[in-house]
Design a protein around this nucleic acid. Sequence first.
DNA 1: TATTGTTATACTCTATAACTATA
DNA 2: TATAGTTATAGAGTATAACAATA
Lengths: 145, 145
Amino acid sequence: MAAHPTDRLGFLLSFRGELTGARIRAALGVVGLHPRNAMTLMQLAPGAMSQRELAAVMEIDPSQLVAILNELEDAGLAGRRRDPADRRRHIVEITPAGVEALERVDAAVGAAERELFGDLTEAEQVLLRGLLDRVVVDPADHECG
Amino acid sequence: MAAHPTDRLGFLLSFRGELTGARIRAALGVVGLHPRNAMTLMQLAPGAMSQRELAAVMEIDPSQLVAILNELEDAGLAGRRRDPADRRRHIVEITPAGVEALERVDAAVGAAERELFGDLTEAEQVLLRGLLDRVVVDPADHECG
DNA sequence: TATTGTTATACTCTATAACTATA
DNA sequence: TATAGTTATAGAGTATAACAATA
């Protein structure tokens, strides 16, 4: 007992995840975009959707999405238009300039991943993915005291 | 190209790490302590040290440590005393009550880890630890834009 | 003059609730 | 009355700089 943080697998995963996240966010920012704005662009790439859907997918509050989309719109990387079927809704879509920016972001993230996982063989990366997928993370019923 | 976030190993590690961290923090809070206060107690368990050393070990600013130690001291879980050799220094040490609290925290973190990694065999947990240790996370020279 | 711990300040993030316009 | 988006406000967290005591 009395295990030091660094001896525990939970802390190791948490800390490595944190640092990996920081490295990925640095890559996301390559175009001069705030990391969360780049993430939003990624979510929009497959196709347009309403703000509410987008907020649900990204698991953020709709009110936070407003500022993100304002910035993306000001930068000409995404656009909002009213849904004719329900004029309360905004349909959000990525612009051609947004697609271009996203390509550069994708390349930077790919490079970051090659750096992060470069010491692992392809097989080991598959193994790591498989193990991570089996870590039980159900955020429910564990509020932080 | 144009890989969706969830397809990328970097995002997977980052997100799992995030959720694992949340679960661990919930466990750290079991005694009613703020997670970072419990972390501080963990660092103090092996032996006393100065505030500056403690801040260095925990990689936080010394000014942030002040509030943490105030709370731990108010709760009777840690104590500060002047270093006779250099009266500028505070020597920080865990109290018997702090050790007791830490035992309960340790038990809760252990339980959280059994939950998180319960689907993995011992061998797989060792494997996961080995793979995580080989992820290259050198935070230097990658500022977030 | 440099160092230890402390205080004060400002900035970012996030969470919440009110507000508008449409339905 | 309920829903989509927006705005405003407050709280936590963090980073920085100024400060007092000691070396």
